[in-house]
């Protein structure tokens, strides 16, 4: 079914193939609320990310985007359905995964270099080697002069860059990012997006990138998942056929980009409005 004869091709959802990097198959997840009720966070959720693919997830606030990422890490278990990573069911926290958190998750008692070296050290890399790699990554995110600083001595954008280096140093095959750039200003954000695309094409990892920002999603992704207002499920999936390599500063003026963003926004808008009226009703 070819609804839009254009770059944003709407895909139909099929059962995920066995060799996908990430396969979430018909998953429902319920939380037990403190008063003992069950709360459905996501329902009948199916999502596939092929190896080397860049997938973005957009949806109204509270629809279950972070929950979805946590299912992939194994920090949360599905109530029904199953999740597979690199073809294997998720049992433990996989060493292939890197996660850039929505909240600031750096260790405040460790200096920048100790934060970045944490991953290799945890994984048993010898100290000298771990610090050498950490220094390399700190240089790559442009913080060479700040090795010895503590997180509280850095700006928000610099902290985010440390978080990126901390994640990338493990060279994850699967990269999960939860609104990593939403707290950044426009210029920094654009620079970081370029940086991310560079690293991604270099490492050939598979990415799931959650964002509130539809334009960011379209600019970065091969594939955009639009979720419904909570309990979240996949409303539609779009393939974005903009050519690569993409330059973030320019792409937003590309007519094709504008057109795609408009189409997806029409789809997303109702859900956002629904989500907003719901949060207003429940008062949180």
């Amino acid at each position: 079914m070819q609804l839009q004869p254009m770059a944003a091709e709407r895909l139909s959802q099929a059962a995920p193939p066995a060799d996908a990097a990430i396969a979430i198959d018909d998953v429902t997840l319920r939380f037990v609320t403190p008063d003992g009720h069950m709360m459905t966070a996501i329902r009948d959720f199916t999502m596939t990310v092929a190896r080397g693919e860049f997938a973005c997830v957009v949806g109204p606030t509270g629809c279950g985007k972070s929950t979805t990422l946590n299912l992939v890490t194994g920090l949360l278990r599905p109530t029904t359905g199953n999740v597979r990573v690199m073809g294997n069911p998720v049992n433990d926290i996989s060493r292939d995964i890197g996660f850039v958190f929505q909240a600031d998750a750096l260790f405040p008692w460790r200096s920048v270099i100790d934060n970045v070296a944490a991953g290799p050290l945890y994984r048993g890399t010898p100290k000298a080697q771990a610090y050498e790699r950490a220094r390399d990554w700190i240089g790559r995110v442009g913080l060479g002069r700040f090795e010895k600083h503590y997180p509280h001595q850095l700006s928000g954008g610099m902290r985010k860059r440390v978080a990126l280096a901390q994640t990338f140093i493990n060279q994850p095959k699967i990269l999960l990012m939860d609104e990593p750039f939403s707290a950044l200003d426009m210029q920094t954000r654009t620079a970081m997006q370029d940086e991310l695309l560079g690293l991604w094409s270099e490492q050939k990892s598979s990415v799931v990138f959650v964002t509130h920002d539809l334009e960011e999603a379209v600019a970065l992704a091969d594939k955009v998942y639009v979720l419904t207002a909570g309990p979240g499920t996949v409303k539609s999936v779009y393939r974005i056929d903009l050519p690569r390599p993409r330059v973030m500063a320019d792409i937003r003026y590309d007519p094709k980009f504008v057109e795609i963003a408009k189409v997806i926004w029409n789809d997303l808008r109702e859900e956002v409005q629904l989500g907003q009226s719901r949060t207003l009703q429940t008062g949180h």
Binding site: L75, I93, G98, F99, Q102, D104, A118, G119, Y122, Q166
Partner: peptide, 10 residues
């Protein structure tokens, strides 16, 4: 979040 971060870092 910090604990989860450490877990995922290995």
């Amino acid at each position: 979040a910090m604990i989860a971060n450490a877990q995922i870092l290995g």
